[in-house]
Amino acid sequence: MKADTVFSPRRAWLYLAADLRLNFSSILSVTGGIAGLFFFMHFFRNPQEAPAALHANQLLLVFWLVLPAFAANAFTDIHKPLENRLSLTLPVSRTERFAAKWTEMTVVFALAVWIFYALLSAFLYIFDLIVMQGQSPFPIFLLPAADHLRIALGGILFSSVFFFGGVFFRKSQLAKTVLAIFSFLVGIFLVAACSFRVIFTQYPAGSVPSFMMEIIRKLGEGALHPLTANSGLFQLLFGLAFAIFFWFLAWLRLGETEAKGGLQK
């Protein structure tokens, strides 16, 4: 067995616990900040809004903004020159380190958010009952609805890019990952624009090529039904493939980062 694929659940668990303890104060600060923000926002909420939709909006913010920020900073301990010397000589393999960080940014984060949000909603409910004299109190969040699970899963899968960015970039991981995504999207847009320009160059402006007419006709007849009917499943499969790809890249890159990280000034 290769040394970097050695896996001991005990060591991975120890590393996870150590990492959470080391980052406890920053986790607490961010949690406090989010709680404050939600508390402030709850004064401006629409009382007529359905509870499920209200929770979905709040969870969207946590899973699609806060989680990527956390994921981008997941590996700062192995990037900081003077901190990483003790971190890199800790007896953990690359796979154990990866598994611990991955668990933190997926399962642990999701569970922590459910507990945190349930407690916060209960607090806001009691606050509204006591201070606001019970005028449409904040709805308590107990069990996540299907929509909430979809948001959480989407956020976790999306944050895989930031998780990779966290390993890949040595400094300013969040900003650099956002910039990289933006550059990639601009690149895709330019390639698409150029391709369209080349493909449609022979058609006069305003005319629609016959193969495009064929696609539109098939869509109208429902001939592409299996694709459109299962779009949720396709989205899920695409999302999973996307995330697994970036998690795998992160695992690969982690080996290189561990190798290059030692004794940097």
Partner: peptide, 16 residues
């Protein structure tokens, strides 16, 4: 970087 080796080795850097 085998963890079995690292668990039997303690490295104290000059600066940390």
């Amino acid at each position: 970087r085998d963890p079995r080796m690292l668990s039997d080795l303690f490295f104290q850097p000059e600066e940390f």
